[in-house]
Design a protein around this nucleic acid. Structure first.
Lengths: 310, 310
DNA sequence: TTAATTTACGTGTATCGTAAGGATA
DNA sequence: TATCCTTACGATACACGTAAATTAA
């Protein structure tokens, strides 16, 4: 059995059982893939794919099992390469992070700035996506780690590092009736058109649950993936906005009134997640340390987020 | 990188950094190994072994890390082969068990007999050893699983299946002063020369701890690795014996008196252990099931052992 | 018909074994 | 000196690419 053959298997699954596309991914002609798959199937004595005529349709049960193990093999092989690079090119390489807009915009900038000075030869890649996509990215080793607020925490395949916790605030135009109200209630929020994060995003699940638990029906007129868009629409008088408190910028957003909602909604915990079996290079570990340090320092200053208590 | 190269690395470590022996293991000439190691080290850009002149002395730190990952790779590759065989030769193969004399002699026979009828084409291999060796065997995939009483339970790399629990009995010649005594105490045991299992074996640690906790000093004249030897020496009047209760055979050992010591010493739990990442073939799973069934049935009859409560 | 896969065949590469040369205990 | 490792070299095997044949959509 060859590692090449396992790569082939994985590429085939990742390209929805299309050999030509898989071959392209691997920079090979597709006849080569065809041969490799044959050899692998012959060696194992079992078909790995369900075929319809000549075309591959899906994995067989044997294929499923072999595929799982193939992922383990390739993860370990990647780790070995990382170990090598760690030795030959200690401060040189790529750091790819999966994250949401919120992190990328409000948390990461100072960390990244500092990190880039420390490691000028490390190329930083930021991949944005929904929490679900971020989990996928980390699982498939397409990023080194993801920062997730709604990660599927029950997934025991991940190392999870609690990173910070944050709460929500209401933003309204200064002339809005709620702008000077103290102790805003859930009911108050239901009286006005609401703008907040799209479902499945950045802890929006908890917001909806909270309303539901209180048997209230909020009137959501618009939901957006990022805080800046929510702010824009609040400025356009389309409604009141609920955003992460840390997304409110005292200087740039001074035309909006920001009211703390920490008591109404549960705090969210954002974690760093990467596969348990992944080897982290030194600079990757350093980045995580810097991030935690930044959170504990700047977070406590702003009061909008802090280290989790876990 | 080639799987072959990782096999080479592992073989080198397993043969104490002796290339010639490693080559023999792999059925290759040793120049081939030399080349493979070179290629691997070149690809990674780092030496994996500390050398003294031309000879290999030990792993470098890079080597250590690569070695760990190589073990993962080969475990997964083995699993893939198992999946294949499970498909092509469902009821055909080898089942190798690591176990102590006690299990092999007093627990396994009926299980093995039944299993052999179910799977006449599965070759059974029983590897005996000390608990430490059994752990090693399982860890290195040299057996499919080990049955351990004193397994290093803190080792999170193992799947552990509690199998049965058992207690100890005193065996004495029928004319011995203790033969008719009720409620034998720890102190009583210290009054006579004692014969029991060797240190590090079959729960002997707990026996010694119990005496120590009671500030008593037993007079151990002889320790042996298996119950039959202990019985022999008790028959020779060399002392009184402490053995696992289940090792006393009512018919064959009727010339010895057996007195339950369950209240004096803690119960031992025997577990099946195999690496978490190991793929178990059907017949291997069946064997474990049969074993558990046998224990629950025959154990409760004899009263000498039973299913653990965990 | 077009897109996808298999099969046949030739080429280049890389691994293995033989054998000779150095180094260590 | 005996054991162990490296290097050089030739034979073999094998994976890849080209191209033609075969089969679904």
């Amino acid at each position: 059995m060859e590692i090449r053959q396992l790569r082939t298997l994985i590429a085939l699954v990742e390209s929805q059982f299309n050999m030509s596309r898989a071959a392209e991914k691997l920079n090979l002609v597709q006849s080569a893939l065809s041969q490799q798959l044959n050899r692998l199937e012959n060696e194992l004595g079992a078909k790995l794919f369900i075929r319809k005529g000549k075309r591959l349709k899906n994995l067989t049960s044997v294929g499923e099992e072999v595929f799982k193990q193939a992922l383990i093999v390739l993860s370990a092989i990647n780790n070995i390469h990382s170990v090598g690079k760690e030795y030959t090119e200690r401060d040189f390489g790529v750091l790819s992070i999966g994250t949401t807009h919120m992190q990328a915009r409000y948390i990461l900038p100072p960390v990244i700035k500092y990190f880039s000075q420390l490691y000028p030869d490390v190329e930083l890649q930021i991949h944005q996506g929904t929490p679900q996509q971020l989990v996928q990215l980390a699982m498939n080793y397409e990023v080194d780690f993801s920062m997730c607020t709604e990660a599927l925490v029950d997934n025991s395949q991940f190392t999870l590092i609690p990173c910070y916790q944050w709460n929500r605030s209401l933003i309204v135009p200064p002339e809005h009736p709620l702008a000077n109200k103290k102790d805003i209630s859930l009911k108050d929020l239901c009286d006005y058109p609401l703008i907040t994060y799209v479902a499945g995003f950045t802890g929006s699940r908890h917001v909806l649950q909270t309303f539901k638990a209180a048997k209230l029906q909020p009137h959501i007129v618009l939901s957006a993936a990022d805080s800046d868009i929510i702010k824009s629409y609040v400025r356009e008088q389309m409604g009141i906005g609920i955003i992460a408190s840390l997304a409110y910028d005292k200087t740039n957003d001074s035309d909006l009134k920001c009211l703390d909602l920490a008591k109404l909604f549960p705090w969210e915990i954002t974690r760093i997640a990467y596969p348990k079996d992944k080897y982290l290079r030194k600079y990757q570990q350093v980045f995580i340390q810097l991030l935690l340090k930044q959170v504990s320092k700047h977070g406590s200053e702003s009061g909008y987020f802090c280290l989790p208590e876990e």
